[in-house]
Amino acid sequence: MSDKLMKLKVNVWRQTNKDQSGEMKGYVVENVDPHMSFLEMMDTLNEQLQHKGEEPVAFDHDCREGICGMCSMVINGIPHGGHKGVTACQLHMRHFNDGDEIFVEPWRAKAFPVLRDLVVDRSALDRIVASGGYVSVNTGGAPDANCLPIPKKEADLSMDAAACIGCGACVAACKNASAMLFVAAKASHLAHLPQGEPERYVRAQNMAQQMDAEGFGTCSNLSQCEAVCPKEIPVRVIAEFNSDLIKAQFKG
């Protein structure tokens, strides 16, 4: 790997607010160190812009270690940039070459309106969780944690789904802008645990309804969501979810 500094042409979506239309704008970014993260490259761009009197590019980020789900950029057409299991904040510039042209855009989905530049409104995902993505247990009075053994295999399957960071890349990748992977991951996390069993089918129905109400599309069955998911949530959760929805009809 070379440590040579790179010069890149970075095209970024600029939009002042929700009500105005936006456009791609090109910038040259110099002195990009291959050890930088993608967001550090964006920081470098922002320093440059501000020195020229131009407002910095707004983008969401917080943990910068791939766990909070805040960062959300489509890089060269792929949410998070297309490296397996990696969020934009964990993507490093060593994957790019000197002279590359890069395109950076916000998540695109009807249910995720752009608020500014690369920042979108993902509150629809919270509302889906509020519609039923939990176990209805209040604080206090829980039995001893070990009184209910759970087979390791089930606990692991639950954990695989619970690893979802709610970033919304799955929505951005889907041609129908469906939130199916997100919703099914939540359902699967709880469905594999005995604690989640009593509300399993109502939960599935409520979340599916809310997903529709928020304007997310239907599942395209193309698995693009799985391909971009930084936590590699498998599409098997969608199959499980669909099967639960069907069973839910019979359970009334």
Partner: peptide
């Protein structure tokens, strides 16, 4: 000790042994 009980009741998928215990 109450925290662990509460979290398990909520469905926090803590690591488990093969016997199913935490």
């Amino acid at each position: 000790v109450n925290i662990i009980d509460q979290c398990v009741a909520q469905g926090v998928p803590f690591a488990r042994e093969y016997g199913g215990h935490l």
